[in-house]
Write a protein that binds this DNA or RNA. Structure first.
Length: 417
RNA sequence: GUGGAUGUAGUUCAAUGGUAGAGCACUGGAUUGUGGUUCCAGCCGUUGCGGGUUCGAGUCCCGUCAUCCACCCCA
């Protein structure tokens, strides 16, 4: 019986783990500068949180959630996204009573029961940010610029920023009806998926990739024409800020977000170097969600980054160098081994990565291991050296070798570092 | 949930229906206590699993499981 990780669940380890850690470190750094505080919410929440937050009609809720009944008979769900739990926390802890805005970031696992493919997993990691309490487009701009800065700091380039406004509770229904009126006439000619979308979410038809559907929807109503004055003003305000700071973006009137809670500003960052799942980050406003959870009317906006997708891009563009120890101490004989352990521990105490031989095998095999793990120096202590109070140092890359008194070993390596 | 492709050694891959192999990796050796390059040797398999056809199946057929890619949808 051979065990394997569950479908769609991946182990993350060296050498990739270095990329993960680097991205996470960059994120913490950038978020801190923008005044975003880390928030850690549970992975498991009451199922209602997600039904209410994401929407009963969505695929996520209808077929992708890891939901089960706990021993107390409650229906609980492994979080499929991060926003709903953060909003739950915001409302539960009455965070609206703290100085506005409240800005949070999180990083962690999400779970969706889907068929895995390139860039899609059942357990995946997101880095997300959420800002509560500001209606002004300056907040939209800040979030977008922070995201752009983070992606750039992580080492990504050539990404495509797409931007749209899908309107508010006032103007979106009007637009939706206009779309239904437009599609309704030739509905039979659209693909089966689109006919289904017509009922579920007509905005999705704008996203269909079937050539015939793309043809048919030529001249369909465009969102910008249906935005109410407030939404229009807000969106124009955002674009003005982005333009004045020369933040690159492309307007995409067909950009639709899948989750029900989005309002007004929506955005998506894509790469052409991924597979079909090419979105590396996405987000938008969700001004109704806090109230939906029983809190006061609170403006909010956020985004989430797909870690695996970013790491995939970084693996293609940059070579990861394996971390290697500075010193490998090879010893011969039990007395020398004790001396070796002492030196290794002293080096470590000084912050130097040092490896030991773990019992004396042949010098040949010890040096072979030193070479294989990429140690920069080998320090050889045999019985002869011990008697003379010395050690042999060897630079593994240059092949140079020399003697150093045992009492000066620490000083020798401090100078080399 | 739907469709397609692929499953052979740790890994990358071979093997007109006729004895399962190679490179890399790993372990050891090439005279005393010196890695990499080289040379030699060794180790490694119920050919994913279960049936069927056949004198004979890694190879053909059916089923099943797994992985990958795509659809749906999404980060």
């Amino acid at each position: 019986m051979k065990y394997a990780a569950l479908k769609g669940m991946e182990d993350i380890l060296s050498p990739d783990i270095a990329i993960w850690q680097a991205v996470e470190a960059k994120a913490r750094d950038i978020f801190a500068r923008y005044g975003f505080q880390e928030i850690r919410v549970p992975v498991l929440e009451s199922t209602d949180i997600f039904i209410r937050g994401i929407g009963q009609e969505t695929d996520i809720v209808e077929k992708e959630m890891y939901t089960f009944t706990d021993k107390g008979g409650r229906s609980v769900t492994m979080r499929p996204e991060g926003t709903a739990p953060v909003v739950r926390c915001f409302v539960e802890k009455n965070l609206h009573t703290l100085p506005s805005p409240q800005k949070f970031y999180y990083m962690g696992q999400m779970y969706r029961y889907e068929r895995p493919q390139k860039g899609r997993f059942r357990q995946f990691y997101q880095i997300g940010a959420e800002a509560f309490g500001v209606a002004a487009p300056a907040m939209d701009a800040e979030i977008i610029m922070m995201l752009a800065n983070l992606l750039e700091a992580a080492g990504l380039s050539g990404l495509n920023f797409e931007l749209n406004s899908i309107g508010c509770a006032e103007c979106r229904p009007v637009y939706r009806q206009a779309l239904r009126d437009f599609f309704g006439g030739k509905l039979q000619e659209y693909c089966p998926d689109c006919q289904r979308r017509y009922e579920a979410n007509p905005l999705r038809i704008l996203d269909c990739k079937v050539p015939r559907c793309i043809e048919l929807r030529q001249g369909s109503p465009s969102v910008p024409d249906y935005l109410c004055d407030a939404c229009r003003t807000h969106f124009d305000g955002l674009l003005a800020i982005l333009d004045s700071f020369e933040v690159p973006y492309t307007l995409n009137p067909n950009l639709v977000r899948g989750l029900d809670y989005y309002t007004m500003t929506t955005f998506e960052v894509t790469s052409e170097h991924l597979g079909a799942q090419k979105a590396v980050a996405a987000g938008g406003r969700y001004d109704r969600l806090v109230a939906e959870f029983g809190g006061p009317d609170t403006h909010a906006i956020g985004f989430a980054i797909g870690m695996e997708r970013i790491v995939t891009l970084l693996k293609e563009s940059s070579q990861t160098e394996l971390r290697a120890p500075k010193v490998f101490v090879a010893t011969l004989g039990s007395e020398a081994e004790m001396e070796g352990i002492k030196i290794v521990e002293m080096l470590r105490a000084k912050g130097v990565w040092a490896e030991q031989s773990y019992g004396s095998t042949s010098l040949k095999s010890q040096l072979r291991r030193a070479d294989r793990i990429g140690a920069e120096f080998a320090l050889i202590i045999g019985e002869n050296e011990l008697k003379a109070g010395k050690a042999q140092w060897k630079n593994m890359k240059k092949g140079e070798q020399g003697e150093v008194p045992l009492s000066e070993v620490m000083q020798f390596f401090m100078e080399e570092c």
